[in-house]
Write a protein that binds this DNA or RNA. Structure first.
Lengths: 162, 162
DNA sequence: ATTATTGCAAACTATTTGCAAGTGA
DNA sequence: TCACTTGCAAATAGTTTGCAATAAT
């Protein structure tokens, strides 16, 4: 669970794990939710993960500390956190719905490893160009994602999970 | 195509319904599939639709002509056509998996109406810029989609389906 | 005639809901 | 305390599979 080395400052906006945890707990608080020990652990799990986690991944990790945790609760908390914008959800065509901590502090897009799903952010946004779009839609939002194989997985393609 | 530089020729690449039908049937043929009457109808349905269709949508439309069609068959055909690249699948966060005819003739991106899901294509692609990406990923592909409300739905928001 | 395709039913997976017991503020 | 949260079990939705009947080539 260590951070990637320094060097590129693309990650200038990346939050430290403790920042992420604090953001998530603050958001829960402001929404009037109780901070249970389990939710604290949930925040810790997402703060420590670069990539996406499926409900089952989260369940498995929570199970370590709370052997009797129910899927029910996992789903509910994931959904609630997503609705609040604290988590970001994404549907992988072959892996179903997954979640990751959402940086709500600035606009950015994602570079996603198709092998291990480790995700980096970058600031370039194609929407800032004056796009000549068809059809007079009233634009609401957009999505720009780039998929590839991260350096680590290029060297060791068998390492499916980090 | 036209030499007239002015005006919007965004739809220059759009295929006519009959072209789309032919493309789909050809693709099935080349893959060694039998062209059943039902699959012909399937092609017709997608050729006539601007937006995305859920398995249920397709099932409902097929049911008109084949009252005893089974979900089973719908799913199988949708999946096979997707695997072949004839259909494009997309997971809407609140509507699940949906399908639409895929233009395999040129690279483009989508402008999607969040109300009726009518989809227009445009040629601008952010990947042609020399992007300064983090992390030395080996880039495989990308996705760029813009969401908005189409002109029609802006005027009549209650018209949920076209 | 031969083999792919279809429809039915049942299996499966992922996700959601109802309610009593437990827990945080 | 008192309402929120949790876990269990069961319900639901979405999708896939097995197999006999059917239809395309």
């Amino acid at each position: 669970m260590s951070e990637q080395g320094s060097g590129h400052d693309h990650a200038a906006h990346a939050q430290s794990p403790s920042e992420t945890i604090q953001d998530m707990l603050n958001a829960m608080n402001q929404a009037g939710w109780r901070i249970t020990d389990q939710r604290r652990t949930l925040a810790r799990i997402f703060a420590a993960t670069d990539g996406y986690l499926s409900p089952k991944d989260v369940y498995d990790q929570l199970s370590v500390k709370y052997p009797s945790v129910s899927f029910n609760t996992v789903y509910r908390n994931l959904r609630m956190l997503s609705d609040m914008g604290v988590l970001e959800q994404f549907y992988f065509m072959d892996g179903g719905l997954k979640f990751k901590a959402n940086c709500i502090k600035h606009h950015h897009h994602h570079l996603i490893c198709t092998n291990c799903e480790k995700t980096l952010t970058f600031d370039y946004c194609p929407m800032k160009e004056s796009l000549d779009l068809p059809g007079r839609y009233r634009i609401l939002n957009h999505r720009f994602e780039i998929y590839g194989v991260c350096e680590q997985c290029q060297q060791d393609p068998s390492a499916k999970e980090i």
